[in-house]
Amino acid sequence: MRIASRILAGLAVSVLASVAQAQQYPEKAIRMIVPFPPGGGTDVVSRIVAAKLGELTGWTVVAENKPGSGGSVGLGLAAKAKADGYTIVMAQNANLVINPILGKANYDPIADFQPIVLTASAPQVLVVSKTSPIKSIKDLLTAAKAKPNAIKFATPGVGTSSHLAGELLQQRAEVKFMHVPYKGTSQAIPDLMGGRVDVYVASVPSAMAHIQEGTMRPLAVFADRRSSDLPDVPTLEELGIKDSAAVTWWGMAAPAGTPDAIVKRLSTEINRVLQLPDTKEKLKMAGAEAIGGTVQEFSALIKSDVPKWTAVIKGANVKSDD
């Protein structure tokens, strides 16, 4: 009896303590790790969220750039940080999910992180040059089937979202392109325009200018639904290629073990931020769409992305270090 009441009392105290902890949270500045250098897409998305979160709640949210190794450096730091709710990280599918599969990260996407909320996403689009004889996805697949390894597929690097989207298409449509990796986009786009390579997968905002000028022709988007920027461009799904979505997403995460109450609080507040018209507008200008949702939804997305991309990477025989 006595022992039981003690246990109960102890439980009550610990529950109260955790509630109190969440109510007092945050007592100091929250560090938001941005795993890319200032000025890039991830940085802009992070800073918009950090600034709005600060405005809305009165908290101090400090965005800290920790770039390197395609985001693995920043995420590695976040995974090892103290799980007290004062370190959060703006993860992206490329660094949270893909880098560990490629053996380019020393963390596990599921065991080492506590998802908070899916923040934003951006679709990718398959483009060809305006002078290309390829006018549609059908043309592309017919040509690729007729002569395997003849279609030259340029990417901004091995293992990038663009490369993996292309691999996904090749596996779903059962064709084979020749992969031509570049170091970023600055030389890949001139080669596409000059006709030295045939296709390229770009994020919608980065290709918009060329599409509007008519120098690039969009053939399809890698998403479940059409992009609001390119309403006339079909999705691969519509063209009969199943399970072919490959969006870039950004999501807020914390080190695994961060108290549930704090995770819930952060998720609620960031969701409120994402509802603001001003946030939506700002993210749209940066080429991303505000998403939001529950902790469970984001967690489920990560858990389904890991096997999906593991299969694609295995099938494509993308080399990794170990």
């Binding site: 390197g68 190794s69 693995s72 380019k104 690097g157 091995v158 990796p181 080399k319 990794s320």
Partner: peptide, 13 residues
């Protein structure tokens, strides 16, 4: 760039 392998990085990200 071509293979995605890391060279002379001594496992330092």
């Amino acid at each position: 760039v071509n293979s995605g392998f890391e060279r002379f990085t001594f496992d330092l990200p």
